[in-house]
Simulated scan of single mutants.
Amino acid sequence: MTYENILVTTENNIATLTINRPSKLNALNVATINELHKAFKKLEKDNEVQVILLTGSGEKAFVAGADISEFANFSVEQGMKLAAEGQEKLFDFVENLKTPVIAAVNGFALGGGLELAMACHFRIASDNAKMGLPEVSLGVIPGYGGTQRLPQLIGKGRAMEMIMTAGMINAEEAHRNGLVNHVVSQTELLEFCTTIAQKIIKNSPNAISKAIKAVNANFKEGKNGYETEIKAFGKCFGTEDFKEGTTAFLEKRKALFTGK
């Protein structure tokens, strides 16, 4: 499939999805959101892809925000539709993807860019990264899940301050606050992400997808995370991966998982 705003490569069971609008600092417009949705959907169905790395092109930005020119003249109804469709097609979609998604934050991750990074299963930042939700400086609020995911990740008080001040934090502060898992140099970023991805690949894809579902359940209204965990745990017993994993352990050899 050919895309205009993103690049997709796959090697050794790891897909790298790059948002490629460097002249716009990789800002998210509707076309890019639609392309990302299609790409993630296709990669999830590809049994050869076990981890997805998401990053931005160039050295300045992961995603510097949404494309403001697209919605500057929107009505109330259009604004609500923009947020609802964006969350469904991309942000919620990525969060609930069965395949692990790692955000490689290589520079500015602002507004929709930080919201996209937060929708990924975890984040690794380059040491030049800057993150923030500056929407209130434009007279609007984060609309792609930012008011929900940021407090979940760094706590209510810190999230309130970041959102109300419209300020940015650097990579080290993001790491201290738990927003990103690791900080490395920009030249090492993708290699470091690949190393973690390779560790993930050694484990059961089936179990990992169930773990993602169970962890996410704790943050969903009306869901009981413990019940979701119990059901997912039980279902693991009926998989080939469980039989292979336990047999390999007892035979003192490395397991060869198939994801079935």
Score class of each variant (00 low, 15 high):
241 D>A: 13
18 T>A: 00
253 R>C: 08
240 E>L: 12
158 R>V: 11
205 P>A: 07
68 I>R: 02
54 L>D: 05
212 I>Q: 05
147 T>A: 11
61 A>S: 15
139 G>C: 12
199 K>Y: 13
140 V>T: 09
187 T>I: 10
127 D>N: 13
166 A>Q: 06
189 L>M: 06
59 E>C: 04
224 N>F: 07
59 E>K: 02
101 V>Y: 00
84 A>K: 06
138 L>G: 07
52 I>V: 12
248 A>E: 09
56 G>D: 09
33 I>F: 05
238 G>P: 02
240 E>T: 14
153 L>V: 10
56 G>P: 10
21 R>C: 07
118 M>L: 13
174 A>Y: 06
2 T>K: 10
247 T>P: 13
102 I>P: 02
39 A>T: 06
120 C>N: 06
192 F>D: 07
96 N>H: 11
102 I>T: 01
231 K>M: 03
200 I>G: 00
123 R>M: 14
128 N>T: 12
103 A>I: 02
199 K>L: 09
146 G>C: 08
51 V>F: 05
125 A>T: 02
60 K>S: 13
47 N>M: 03
138 L>C: 04
89 K>W: 14
48 E>W: 02
256 L>G: 06
132 G>Y: 01
226 Y>H: 12
202 K>M: 12
119 A>F: 05
210 K>T: 09
74 F>L: 05
7 L>Y: 06
26 N>D: 13
29 N>S: 14
234 G>E: 04
109 A>P: 10
108 F>T: 14
32 T>D: 15
53 L>Q: 05
58 G>M: 10
250 L>Y: 15
59 E>P: 05
216 N>F: 03
48 E>I: 04
47 N>Y: 12
150 L>G: 03
101 V>L: 01
108 F>I: 13
40 F>P: 08
183 V>Q: 07
114 L>M: 07
162 M>G: 01
258 T>G: 06
124 I>L: 05
211 A>F: 15
237 F>D: 09
8 V>S: 00
201 I>K: 00
170 N>R: 01
154 I>N: 08
252 K>C: 13
80 M>C: 07
246 T>Q: 08
227 E>I: 06
115 E>M: 02
103 A>G: 03
25 L>C: 09
260 K>V: 15
40 F>H: 15
79 G>I: 12
50 Q>F: 00
8 V>W: 03
254 K>N: 15
63 V>L: 06
218 N>F: 11
247 T>N: 10
149 R>W: 02
22 P>I: 13
87 Q>P: 01
206 N>F: 15
140 V>I: 12
121 H>L: 09
27 A>Y: 10
16 T>E: 02
49 V>F: 03
33 I>W: 07
257 F>D: 06
187 T>Y: 04
55 T>F: 07
172 E>C: 05
52 I>G: 03
66 A>F: 00
113 G>C: 10
19 I>A: 03
88 E>D: 04
73 N>S: 07
140 V>W: 04
78 Q>L: 09
182 H>G: 00
222 G>L: 08
157 G>V: 14
130 K>W: 10
182 H>W: 13
16 T>L: 00
251 E>I: 05
5 N>R: 10
225 G>H: 04
190 L>W: 09
257 F>E: 11
